[in-house]
């Protein structure tokens, strides 16, 4: 059975992911239609996230749906002590679907259990952000023509990076090979290595941003190494420039390589990479619109025929 809500990327099996990506490709070819005419979608952002909210709202507006909601919980009844349950029950009277971001972990799962309308999790604390994973997968699929048997090099904060963990899970259905490149303090948690082992997924770990990790890759997925993640600031000072990608480093990379980043970028990709045709992070962000159109319409059972 098709899932009713999207809370966690693991709510979707391989068929669900393929269905969403095929649908996203159709939306990319024709992003404007009246598919959501007469539908009201709520965007409840208990924690601000301008980038994600604008992407969702653009997705809806381009399909002629209407958006209600708030971008900051400071202006809502939750500051008066209203429970999440009451907010969700109230909004579900008004909207056909609820998109929510909340600072508390597990909030979207709980909302999906009590809400009569579908819930899309747009981030619950540091837990899950499944539409980010779907836009990442869509971008990989679009740039490589397949999701199968790709070598994916993931660089930066592999310990706390929510996007990284979900990407590993989401693409695990498609026989990837991973190169994990991270400083000692931020290396990939054991649970993901055990997960890879259980699915017979090959991976290698690198402490240095070695040329080999770039030259063998089909996808180079960069993430931010954040100062606040380090217990030892000396350690941060030592590694902060070690995971920065510049244009020269791409010289011997494969012709099909694309560089992705969940954004915002700080210093981890030099601006001189931006003009390289292998840089694809801005297109990746744009793909968020189409992946989100696909998820929204899927949950509302709106078929795209045109």
């Amino acid at each position: 059975m098709k899932p009713k809500s999207l809370v966690d990327i693991n709510d979707y099996d391989k068929d669900d992911i393929v269905r969403i990506l095929e649908s996203a490709a159709r939306f990319k070819a024709n992003p404007n239609s009246d598919l959501l005419q007469g539908k009201v979608c709520a965007t409840l952002f208990f924690e601000p996230s301008t980038r994600t909210r604008l992407s969702f709202e653009t997705a809806i507006n381009r399909l002629r749906g209407r958006v209600i909601g708030f971008s900051d919980a400071g202006t809502t009844s939750s500051t008066k002590g209203e429970s999440l349950k009451d907010t969700i029950m109230m909004v579900s009277n008004y909207a056909d679907l609820i998109i929510m971001r909340h600072y508390l972990e597990g909030s979207a799962r709980y909302a999906s259990e009590i809400s009569p309308v579908p819930i899309i999790n747009a981030g619950d604390g540091s837990n899950q952000h499944p539409t980010q994973t779907l836009l990442d997968l869509f971008t990989i699929y679009e740039t490589q023509g397949t999701l199968e048997n790709l070598t994916i090099t993931i660089v930066g904060d592999l310990k706390y990076g929510r996007a990284v963990h979900s990407l590993i899970q989401g693409i695990s259905h498609f026989h990837p090979t991973f190169n994990f490149v991270a400083p000692e303090e931020l290396h990939i948690p054991d649970k993901y290595k055990i997960f890879c082992d259980s699915k017979q997924i090959r991976y290698r770990e690198f402490v240095d941003f070695a040329p080999e990790s770039i030259e063998t890759a089909d996808i180079l997925y960069m993430t931010r190494v954040q100062k606040e993640r380090f217990t030892d600031l000396m350690e941060y000072e030592k590694v902060k420039n070690a995971y920065v990608l510049n244009n020269e480093m791409l010289n011997n990379s494969k012709s099909n390589l694309r560089v992705l980043h969940p954004l915002p970028r700080v210093k981890e990709i030099d601006q001189d990479v931006d003009d390289n045709p292998k840089a694809y992070y801005f297109q990746q962000a744009k793909n968020g619109i189409y992946a989100r159109q696909a998820v929204i319409c899927d949950l509302l059972n709106m078929e795209y025929h045109k």
């Binding site: 999440l84 909340h102 600072y103 972990e105 597990g106």
Partner: peptide, 12 residues
């Protein structure tokens, strides 16, 4: 044990 878990912040 997670203070940021919804179950510690909502009557549920």
């Amino acid at each position: 044990n997670n203070p940021k878990c919804i179950t510690n912040n909502e009557p549920m």
